[in-house]
Design a protein around this nucleic acid. Sequence first.
DNA 1: CACGTTCTGTACTGATCTATCCAATACTCG
DNA 2: CGAGTATTGGATAGATCAGTACAGAACGTG
Lengths: 224, 224
Amino acid sequence: MSASTQARAPALVLHCPFQNRYGTDMARPRTFDEERALDAAMRAFWANGYEATSTQDLCEATGLGRSSIYNTFTSKHDLFRRALSRYIELMSVPQAEILEDAERPGLERIRALFARTVDTEFDHRGDDESSIGCLTVNTVVELARRDPEAAALVERDLDFRLGLLRVALEAGRRDGTITTRRDADALARFVNATIGGMRVSAQAGADRAALESIADTALDALRP
Amino acid sequence: MSASTQARAPALVLHCPFQNRYGTDMARPRTFDEERALDAAMRAFWANGYEATSTQDLCEATGLGRSSIYNTFTSKHDLFRRALSRYIELMSVPQAEILEDAERPGLERIRALFARTVDTEFDHRGDDESSIGCLTVNTVVELARRDPEAAALVERDLDFRLGLLRVALEAGRRDGTITTRRDADALARFVNATIGGMRVSAQAGADRAALESIADTALDALRP
DNA sequence: CACGTTCTGTACTGATCTATCCAATACTCG
DNA sequence: CGAGTATTGGATAGATCAGTACAGAACGTG
């Protein structure tokens, strides 16, 4: 009944509300959807950060009682880890689709990624309509220095995204839409930094037009 | 004996350890330097964030007792506000010098600003030699959404820096080192976002070469 | 030297934090 | 229906949080 067993086992049976996590006889079933609860917790951490989100906040955000939270997610830290993993997964899939889309020229993939960054920045807002930024960036800034697990998660995500970017940038070089002589690695880091900068700018109050002009300007660097 | 009186009055007499804050008769003098204490607190907030820095941490960082901290700085929140103000002031002065340096062409001023950004990222490191980023960026991400005073400070700083950047960019347009047709406002936002992206990248583990390549690539956008 | 004032160390307060305990509950399965 | 098990709500524990109260120490001034 270790934490890792508890966390991994249910993945394949989550859709069935009347089966427990160990394949043994069933008892009292849960009255909530673990995935929805995780989404709510993710959003709470995303909007308010790790330290400023209390377990009480998590109860209110998820609608669960303390017992259910701890029974399901072991600890606040573990819940955060799962929330961050989920966030990274949710963001990675569409980003990979955009950057690996062979139909589009390389430069257009980057442009589409920037556009998506702007859109997500304005899709997900706090209660006051201000930007809540990006959970990955927020975690890097708030937590990564003193939480090795969180640092490992965002580092793995960074490597993955830099790889995707290199693929798209090299495609752009081959199809002629990207003409700069700089190597794909430097360009990937630049594009990634630009996205980070856009997210910080959004949290600092930049509007949609401002973010779009940042993205357009950044694209200029790829075809100087 | 309001907090604001207490905070404002000493500015002109800080150098003299044997004069109190109200111009009245003197009593027991302080055994510490308020400015040094503020620096230590600033560094603690900078390295660990607002929430994760306890008043106990602040006592240890400054070497002061609780009474001295509260007597001098009123509250944790007020101390943070002063630390952030000081940080902004400390960073603004050299940045303004670089961006208003009429000796240099406009593009070179931006290049020098990027170089300085890289340098400060590696000058100020945590105990583990990892990057502690930029207190302004950290505050935008961690605190600005729920602390109006902090938000106002960073917004004022942002306006100031965007203004400086516009000046340098327009100078570059005139002297021919910046050839892009994009308006100075968009370019200023882009340069600012690039710096933010570099700081997040540094916190995510990027080394000096990576930051320099981000800066070099960004400069390409100014002369496409 | 004595007074007035400020500083400082220690103990403390009440609130809040994460996490656990436990009894009551609700369900499946034999 | 009874046995067995997981979930749930509420109470609670123990630590830590920001901030305060207070007494004594340390100084300039008269």
